[in-house]
Design a protein around this nucleic acid. Structure first.
Lengths: 219, 219
DNA sequence: TTTGTTGTTTTGTGATCACAAATAATGATG
DNA sequence: CATCATTATTTGTGATCACAAAACAACAAA
């Protein structure tokens, strides 16, 4: 008898490890929009050869977490105003819907998990830690939407997060995280009484706040 | 003086050519759900080495056009009933919205193009050509949604099409294409009078028909 | 300073190969 | 005939390398 499907991080293929490392970095907003990357640089930093680095990058480009020029140069995306509007419209369409569906199947375990994450978010806001804030905020939304049991929709949303994370990081760096309204508490309250519509509205307000911050910062 | 940005298909990198060839094959429903592929097979068939084949496959896996087992075996996805429901729910959420937005900015050129495609679709239906039907039907929806100027949303939808195409092909193969209702004419009529809501309803009916066909066939 | 040119370096691409894991085929055993 | 162990084959993975194109730097001319 052996443990099955244990995702031991050492047994993972190299390209998968590179992929996860890079993806997390982008998702956390740790890379600046427009920043350039090289296969050799990535490979060296993770002590692997170019081949798995190339595969990981190709995958992330497909998910729009990275961009490539026609000549193969690798960049962190730096979406323009109109593209950001497009991305946030997609979020506003998808995320309230996911929240609505999550409301039905949420249980106490989830609510506890979410409020724990929300505590971390509060700390990040007060201490002014943009990367930590982004990471925990993403965790909050992801944990909530996973309860919607709509993996296809969730995958679409994750792809959008990857595209907006670097700019959000820049915005938080400029404007700070201290004055953000906390719609997560409203979301938790709605979840506690299973008010799907109130939950959807809280999520919409949360996303819209992000959009407005961006508009304010560079729109 | 030279032509700029001419996407000469011969100048494209090898991995890009492999990617497009494979993607089109999946999108047309030319591959059976669950069918197995190998890197060496793909490479040999296109007279390239394994490296670009690997990159193309990695990219298509990221777009969910192909699947890989934990050990790296490559398959055409064969989504179960629940996953198909999930995918069609996403289509029902996204496509009417895209149609709604397309209605505003549609012009005569687009309508002409769409009605031409619709003619081809009619032919495919009568002659019972599933692959041709899928290809033209995809063209119709894509051309319409491109007018919505929401590339992020469109990319999400394309990813879903890739996942449903193989099963749709199987369904059409079983049930035939002759008895399909043609909601495209209703869509064109709505487009001519710029009735965004009627257009959205026609598209919804079209997508719902696909979902019901699947339910009927294997649900 | 600006512009154009030349030479150098950086960088992605594609092919090849050894290797290990997974799969398939074979044969032994009940 | 079914089941399990063993062998042979298939298959993805990761490293390495030569190559060409792109980006960069240095320098000359206006």
């Amino acid at each position: 008898m052996q443990a099955l499907n244990e995702p031991l991080l050492d047994n993972l293929p190299t390209h998968e490890r590179v992929y996860r490392a890079l993806r997390d970095t982008v998702m956390d907003g740790a890379l600046a929009p427009g920043e350039a990357l090289t296969l050799r640089g990535i490979a060296e930093q993770l002590s692997v050869s170019m081949t798995p680095a190339r595969e990981a990058v190709r995958r992330l480009v497909a998910e729009r977490a990275l961009e490539m020029t026609g000549s193969g140069r690798i960049f962190v995306p730096n979406p323009g105003v109109e593209q950001l509007e497009d991305l946030f419209q997609a979020r506003l369409l998808l995320e309230p819907e996911l929240a609505r569906r999550a409301a039905a199947s949420s249980d106490k375990t989830l609510r506890k998990r979410l409020s724990q994450i929300d505590l971390s978010i509060d700390e990040n806001m007060k201490s002014g830690d943009p990367v930590g804030y982004i990471r925990n905020n993403t965790q909050f939304h992801r944990a909530l939407y996973q309860a919607a049991s709509a993996p296809a929709l969730l995958a679409l949303v994750e792809s959008i997060w990857l595209q907006t994370a670097p700019v959000m990081r820049r915005v938080y760096g400029r404007l700070g995280t201290r004055e953000l309204a906390d719609y997560h508490e409203a979301a938790l309250a709605a979840l506690a009484v299973r008010d799907a519509e109130a939950l959807a509205q809280a999520i919409e307000a949360d996303v819209a706040q992000g959009r407005d911050l961006i508009r304010q910062s560079q729109g």
